[in-house]
Design a protein around this nucleic acid. Structure first.
Length: 263
DNA sequence: AAGAATGTTATGTA
DNA sequence: CTACATAACATTCT
C-alpha cells in the first residue's frame, strides 16, 4: 500500500466481532459491501501502531482499532476488487489497492478518549520515535517479576512477542528467570536497544529476523531465529532447552544464558 | 483431522 | 493483593 493514499473502509459483522460499541459497521445484509454505513466514505488520514495495536484515524475523529492477535492477517491486493474471503472483517480501499483484514481479535470503532486510554495502558514501543525507555527501565528495575515475563507484558514494553522474547534474551545473554530488579542499567539499555534494532528490521523486512546472518543478508530469508524452536545453540553448539513462561513456549541455552548468582 | 501456532483478556483458584 | 492456571476468542496450516 503506497503511503499517503486516501483509503475508505467497509466492514461486516461476524459473530462476536465488533461487539458492543461498533455493531453498526456491518451492512444490512451482513454481506461485505464497499462503503456500507459508519466508516463509509470517510477518509483514512493516518495509521499508527502502538505495540501490536493498529489505529487507523479517519476524518471527524473516528478511529478504527485493530489487533491481529495470533491469527489475524492483513493482505494487500491491487485492484480490481474481488470477493473477500469469509474471514475478512474489514476492507480498506484506495484508488489502486484493496486491503483485507481477516481474523483480528480486536476490531472496533473508537473515539479519541478511548484511543487515549488504550495508549495509556500500553508501555513504550521501541519502534516509536516518541517512546520513553526510562519508563520501561523504571518498571523493570522495581519489579521482582522475572525478565522473561516482563518482556512480554505489553504494559511494561509494547511490541515484544513470543519469538522476540526468546531471541532477545539469548542475544543479551540473559536468563529469563532473572528478576527485573536484578538487571543493571547497562543491561536494560542494551535490551531496549536490541529490541529497537530487531523490531525495526522486522518492520522493514516484514519478517522476524533475529540472527546476525539474516540481519546482514535478509534478502532471501524470511523468518530466521537463533534458538527459538532450534536444536543447538549457534554460538556454543550446546543443546537448547524448551521451557514454558506464562504458558508460552520459550527456549534457552543453558551455557550462554547463565542465571545470575544474585537471588 | 486433531493439534499447534508469532496474542490478549476475563475469570477462577489457592 | 498476588500469582498462577484455565478458558475463551480468532484462523490457517500440516
Amino acid at each position: 500500500m503506497p503511503e499517503g493514499h486516501t483509503i475508505h473502509a467497509a466492514a461486516r459483522k461476524h459473530d462476536n466481532m465488533l461487539k458492543g460499541r461498533v455493531v453498526n459497521l456491518s451492512s444490512p445484509q451482513g454481506r461485505f459491501v464497499e462503503g456500507a454505513q459508519k466508516l463509509n466514505g470517510r477518509e483514512c488520514i493516518r495509521v499508527e501502531a502502538y505495540g501490536k495495536h493498529l489505529v487507523y484515524r479517519f476524518v471527524e475523529h473516528y478511529y478504527l482499532h485493530i489487533h491481529l492477535g495470533l491469527f489475524g492477517r492483513i493482505k494487500v491486493h491491487k485492484r480490481p476488487i474481488k470477493d473477500a474471503k469469509n474471514s475478512v472483517r474489514v476492507r480498506l480501499i484506495s484508488a489502486t489497492h484493496v486491503i483485507d483484514i481477516s481474523g483480528p481479535t480486536i476490531c472496533e470503532l473508537l473515539r479519541a478518549p478511548e484511543i487515549e486510554q488504550l495508549i495509556d495502558r500500553i508501555g513504550p514501543d521501541p519502534l516509536r520515535e516518541d517512546a520513553e525507555p526510562e519508563r520501561v527501565f523504571h518498571r523493570i528495575r522495581n519489579s521482582r517479576v522475572p525478565i522473561g515475563k516482563l518482556l512480554m507484558d505489553q504494559s511494561v514494553i509494547a511490541g515484544i512477542g513470543n519469538i522476540y522474547r526468546t531471541e532477545l534474551l539469548w542475544r543479551q545473554k540473559l536468563h529469563p528467570d532473572i528478576r527485573g530488579r536484578d538487571l543493571n542499567q547497562k543491561q536494560l539499555e542494551a535490551l531496549w536497544d536490541d529490541a529497537a534494532l530487531l523490531l525495526n528490521i522486522g518492520a522493514k523486512k516484514n519478517a522476524i529476523l533475529t540472527t546476525d546472518i539474516a540481519i546482514a543478508n535478509p534478502s532471501k530469508s524470511r523468518e530466521k531465529f537463533n534458538i527459538f524452536a532450534q536444536k543447538a545453540c549457534p554460538k556454543c553448539r550446546g543443546p537448547i532447552t524448551k521451557i514454558f513462561i506464562n504458558g508460552r513456549r520459550a527456549f534457552i541455552c543453558a551455557l550462554c544464558q547463565k542465571q545470575l548468582p544474585k537471588r
